[in-house]
Every structure is written in C-alpha cells, then in structure tokens.
Simulated assay, not measured.
Amino acid sequence: MPSLGNPRYKAVVKTASGQEYDLYKLKVIQDLTMSDDPDSLAKEVSLTVMNAAENGVTLATLIQPSDRLYIYANVGHGDFEVFRGVIWDRDMVTDTEKKVTFTAYDYLIYMMKSQDYFYYKKGLSTKEIVKRICTAWKLKLKYSYGSIKNKRIKPVQKNIGDMIVYVLNRAKSKLSSRYIFTIEGTTVIIKYANTNTTIYKIEEGKNVISIEVKVTMDDIVTKIKIYGEAKKKSIPKLASMSKNTSKFGTIQEIMDKDKKEKLSKIKKQAQKKLKSSAKVKYEYIVTAISNPKIKRGDTVYVGCGTAGLKGNKTVKSITHDCVAGTMDVVFY
C-alpha cells in the first residue's frame, strides 16, 4: 500500500487524437524523474518506457511530441496531480529499440520559448506588469507576492518568462524576500517562498539516505555601487561600499536609486546584501525517501547533525526519482 514513506507514482499520456495511456497500468515505466530547479523556469520530466506494442503499434509511434503528460502520486489517500505538461522530445535510436525516452516540461516552457516586445510607463507595480503579460498571453494568474513601483521600461525584446523574472527580481531586491514563480495546471503562480502550512521533516536515521556538502563562491557579492537616475550623458554614482574584497576579490553588483527614494534606505539594503553575500555559500544536497508533497520554495525541517544541517530550511531545488522512490533536495 502506498504511504508517505512509500509513495507510488504513475504517468498518464493523453494524445492529440484523444487516446489515453496509463503507463503505470501498462507496467512499461523503466525510469521516471521530475526536476524542479530555479535555473530552469519549467519543471522537467524524463520518462523512459519499454517500447511495447498496443494493438500492434509501439508506444514510440503512439506517443508523440505535443501530447500531454500527467504525473500522479499516491501516499495512501488516493491519487493527486504533481505534474502536468507537454511532451517536448522523443529519443529513440531505431524503430525496433526496446525502450524510448520522452522529455516533458510543464506549461511554463512556452514562456521560456516565446518572445515579445515589452514597454511600460513609469509607476506601474510589479503585479500590474505581470498581470498585463499574462493577460496578453491569455494566461490565468494567481499573484500573492509583494510589489514595487517601477521606473519606465523602454521597449525591450525578451522571452516572456525572462521579462517576468526581470520585474520580479527588481521587486525582490527591494523586498528582500524570495518569490516562487511556477505553474499549477494552467494557472501561473507567483507567491512568497515558505508559505506552506505543513512542514515536513527530513531526518537522519529516518528518511535520509545520504548527504553531500558543497562549498562554493557562486553568488558572492563583495562590492555594491549605487547609481541615481540616468541623465542625458551620464549616470551619477551616488555611493559605493564593499566587504571582504581582499579575501574574495571584487565581485560587483549595481543598485539603482529612484528619484524619490532616500539614499540612506538604499545604503541599508546594500549593507544587508553584503552581510549575507560577501562570504562562501554552503550547498547541501540531501538524498532522502521521496515525498511528493514537498515543493520548491517550501519550508522543511532538516535534521542532519553530522553535516551541520539542522532546523527549518528552504527548498531551492528538488528532483524525484519516482522509480527508485528517492529525492535529491538542495537547500538555500
């Protein structure tokens, strides 16, 4: 019986012709992994199946790119959806090969692949800009993250997803709070991280399999320059501050000051940024029993004392191996 300690996953494909294939019932799944990483806007699924025949036709022929893929999990209380997306690639060496691999992405893949021109007048909030983008592309939006007022955005050509990330990152620099940009079904979700009400536990001696610790200089910032609003021939530099440049070298970031903002406020933001960013980062990758209830951005209690990792942590990325029943979790 499936349970939280022994989850069951199944994959269902719905083709453009209206056919439906429950690959779990067909017992053809050889490998199934789901990855959710902030470096890739869309969640990714890799699915390898035996190239079995249905009514004399192989699955490699029946299932094609553009067909829809649904992944469901069961932890003892019935199936619930954990992924919905589109099959993007099919990888097969020959028509007679015994297995075939499909790669699918959730519907944010269309935001990653599509471009447009964007330009907005001064004073629009983060939420207003995101809403206009989603409305123009006929996307439903559920927005519960904070907003700031934006300067005029001159016409710029960007991928849709990159434009939303751009305005969200501007808000994040002022709000100092992480956001989660994802999609549930066909509704774009933008929310604060760490909003989950149930905090699941990952603990040594219970559900942890292994722990990897990586120490890196990625994302270090040791110097910040603050600039004012651009003039005709220059951009005035208002302040500069640094920390640990002698140890790590100069890795510089820019902060912009709007006309009505106080310089003292921007300096405080810069000091806070340097305090958290002018040092090496410890990246922990914990392999544990798969928990399909845990999502990127969730708060999770981690009890891995041997690695010095203990307390509530934020999930940065998560990859489920649905066949092995394990997950790799990276924390901020």
Results as ranks from 00 to 15, higher is better:
Leu4Pro: 06
Gly5Ala: 14
Pro7Cys: 01
Ala11Cys: 01
Thr15Met: 13
Gly18Gln: 08
Gln19Phe: 09
Glu20Trp: 08
Tyr21Thr: 03
Tyr24Met: 06
Lys25Asp: 14
Lys25Glu: 14
Lys27Asn: 14
Met34Pro: 01
Asp37Trp: 02
Asp39Lys: 14
Ala42Trp: 13
Thr48Lys: 15
Thr48Leu: 07
Gly56Arg: 09
Leu69Met: 13
Tyr72Thr: 00
Asn74Ile: 05
Val75Ser: 13
Gly78Ala: 02
Gly78Trp: 11
Asp79His: 05
Ile87Lys: 05
Arg90Lys: 11
Glu97Trp: 14
Lys98Gly: 15
Thr101Arg: 08
Asp106Lys: 01
Lys113Met: 07
Tyr117His: 11
Tyr119Val: 04
Gly123Ser: 00
Thr126Gly: 01
Thr126Leu: 01
Lys127His: 14
Thr135Trp: 09
Ala136Leu: 15
Trp137Thr: 07
Trp137Tyr: 14
Lys140Leu: 15
Leu141Ile: 10
Gly146Met: 01
Ile148Glu: 12
Lys151Arg: 14
Ile153Gln: 12
Lys154Gly: 02
Gln157Ile: 05
Val165Cys: 06
Leu168Gly: 00
Asn169His: 13
Lys172Cys: 04
Ile180Phe: 12
Thr186Gly: 04
Lys191Glu: 15
Thr195Phe: 10
Ile199His: 02
Ile202Phe: 02
Asn207Asp: 04
Glu212Tyr: 09
Glu212Lys: 14
Val213His: 08
Met217Trp: 08
Asp218Ser: 09
Ile220Tyr: 03
Val221Gln: 04
Ile224Glu: 05
Ile226Gly: 01
Tyr227Gly: 04
Gly228Pro: 08
Ala230Leu: 08
Ser234Gly: 04
Ile235Arg: 10
Ile235Leu: 06
Pro236Phe: 02
Pro236Leu: 00
Lys237Met: 11
Leu238Gln: 02
Asn244Gln: 10
Ser246Asn: 13
Lys247Tyr: 07
Gln252Asp: 00
Ile254Trp: 07
Met255Gly: 03
Lys260Trp: 11
Lys262Gly: 11
Lys262Phe: 06
Lys265Leu: 04
Lys267Gly: 06
Lys267Phe: 02
Ala270Thr: 13
Lys273Pro: 07
Lys275Leu: 06
Ser276Asn: 12
Ser276Val: 14
Tyr284Asp: 00
Tyr284His: 09
Val286Trp: 01
Thr287Pro: 00
Asn291Met: 10
Lys295Ser: 08
Arg296Gly: 11
Gly297Ala: 10
Thr299Pro: 02
Gly308Val: 13
Lys310Gly: 08
Lys310Met: 10
Asn312Lys: 11
Ser317Asn: 05
Ser317Val: 03
Ser317Tyr: 05
Thr319Phe: 03
Cys322Arg: 03
Val323Thr: 12
